[in-house]
């Protein structure tokens, strides 16, 4: 009996010393990767998700957060459907993670051929949010979104907005604003962000709704002007620019979110490990600098909250797509 008690105390002491010795590494007890991590992204090398993943792979290495290298695998195609299918096929693999954006929520809603939805995957953490701003060429007559909307009402279909695929957030925002105001302008699909900027600067098109990092340099150089922040609150980057709601246009706010997910059937232990990895990354100055440099906002959510976020985003986006007249298949 007594010896049993001693053993217990000894074990307790050991456990405590473990905590003291390893400090914040407590979460690392249990699962730990034993080899390189495969990181699946749905964009080609150089695309948004690809660069985000590579930057994170680099930061986790520099900060010694993961004992092994993160290797990015590009599974582009099908607006994310290929990457999701691949990740679902990795069921039970503890050394594979993937990155998500809202495209992975929208694609299964609109694409009949998609075999899986984001709900099939295991949420790990949401990391960053990218707001949307409305910009026009600096010599355009519109000083506010209201001006633009009035001009569009006078010339229905004449003003033009360059943007991505029709299910992208820029088009969904356009549909929402058109519905809320009764204005109408054309949406012109241009695949690369560079072309969109070129067409706006060249005066061929009139309005761009995109993340600030696409336009900020031109705003700074005086060749573009921000006419609205499509956010709940004003952006610290443009404190003088009123939000769209302040301008009397009441629409639901959509956000470009970025984060991490794992294959289906990932155990609680493994989820906790990855949560811990990204929570630690989230606290580093390097991460804060990265967010600031790329005009992103901290959007940290843990696994459980992220799962709920995916569900509410799915509902919101389904409604918006339907309202926008896009065929919804799920």
């Amino acid at each position: 009996m007594r010896s049993g008690k001693h053993v217990g105390m000894l074990l307790g002491l050991l456990a405590w010393s473990g905590i003291f010795l390893h400090g914040q590494d407590v979460w690392a007890q249990g699962f730990k990767p034993s080899g390189p991590i495969e990181v699946v992204v749905h964009s080609k090398a150089g695309g948004g998700s690809d660069l985000f993943a590579r930057a994170i792979a680099d930061m986790t290495r520099e900060e010694n957060i993961i004992p092994h290298r993160m290797q990015v695998t590009n599974k582009s195609g099908g607006s994310g459907a290929v990457a999701m299918t691949y990740l679902v096929g990795k069921k039970g693999d503890t050394h594979t993670i993937g990155f998500f954006t809202p495209v992975l929520i929208v694609t299964p809603l609109t694409l009949k051929e998609a075999q899986v939805t984001i709900q099939d995957l295991t949420p790990i953490a949401r990391l960053a949010l990218e707001p949307t701003v409305a910009v026009v060429k600096a010599d355009a007559p519109y000083k506010t979104m209201r001006d633009f909307v009035e001009a569009a009402k006078k010339n229905p279909g004449k003003l033009k907005q360059p943007g991505g695929a029709i299910s992208s957030l820029d088009n969904l925002f356009r549909m929402l604003i058109q519905k809320a105001t009764g204005a109408q302008w054309a949406y012109i699909n241009l695949e690369s962000g560079g072309e969109r900027v070129a067409n706006l600067l060249g005066g061929h098109m009139d309005l761009m709704l995109d993340n600030p990092d696409k336009s900020h340099e031109y705003v700074r150089a005086g060749s573009m002007r921000v006419i609205a922040a499509l956010t709940e609150n004003r952006l610290s980057l443009y404190p003088d620019v009123p939000t769209i709601k302040e301008q009397g246009i009441d629409i639901p706010i959509l956000t470009q979110s970025r984060g991490v997910m794992a294959p289906p059937g990932t155990s609680k232990e493994v989820v906790a490990y990855w949560e811990g990895v990204f929570e630690r990354l989230n606290k580093t100055p390097r991460w804060k600098k990265y967010l600031a440099d790329n005009l992103m906002e901290d959007g940290f959510l843990r696994s459980q909250e992220l799962g709920k976020f995916w569900d509410t985003e799915t509902r919101l986006l389904r409604d918006v797509l339907k309202e926008a007249g896009v065929k919804v298949v799920r």
Partner: peptide
């Protein structure tokens, strides 16, 4: 360029 902290653009 962006990852190195430069800001590619007109400036």
């Amino acid at each position: 360029l962006t990852l190195w902290g430069m800001k590619p653009g007109p400036l």
